[in-house]
């Protein structure tokens, strides 16, 4: 499954009401580290297909949701489970670091 694009409009439906845990990558075009992490996010979307939904939210085009979750830095990755944020990672980190958090989110 490819990375899904979420917006302020469909965030509730795509993320909060998802049956499986969701990873949301808050990003923007002007953010270098967001570009750096993008291929890793795509790989994760493939590898965890069916277990974890992987989405991206452009903070420039969708200001409401980042405001709601207090985003003051990007890239920020937030993991949602049953409509609640359960874990988050700030900054461009290695794939193995993200995978460690994924195991925690999927395992718990």
């Amino acid at each position: 499954m490819a990375v899904c694009q979420v917006t302020d409009q469909n965030f509730e439906q795509e993320v909060l009401q998802s049956d499986i845990p969701v990873l949301v990558d808050f990003w923007a075009a002007w953010c270098g580290p967001c570009r750096a992490i993008a291929p890793v996010i795509e790989e994760l979307a493939e590898e965890y297909q069916g277990k974890l939904k992987v989405c991206k939210l452009n903070v420039d085009e969708n200001p409401v949701t980042p405001g709601k979750y207090g985003i003051r830095a990007i890239p920020t990755l937030i993991f949602f489970k049953n409509g609640q944020p359960v874990e988050s990672i700030t900054g461009a980190v290695a794939k193995s670091t993200i995978e460690a958090v994924i195991s925690k989110v999927l395992g718990a």
Binding site: A28, W30, C31, G32, P33, C34, D60, G70, I71, R72, A73, I74, P75, T76, S88, T90, G91
Partner: peptide, 16 residues
């Protein structure tokens, strides 16, 4: 960190 402490102006500047 990520809540107002930053090490990247191009990433986080627009939030301020």
């Amino acid at each position: 960190t990520g809540k107002g402490v930053s090490y990247c102006a191009t990433c986080d500047g627009p939030f301020f």
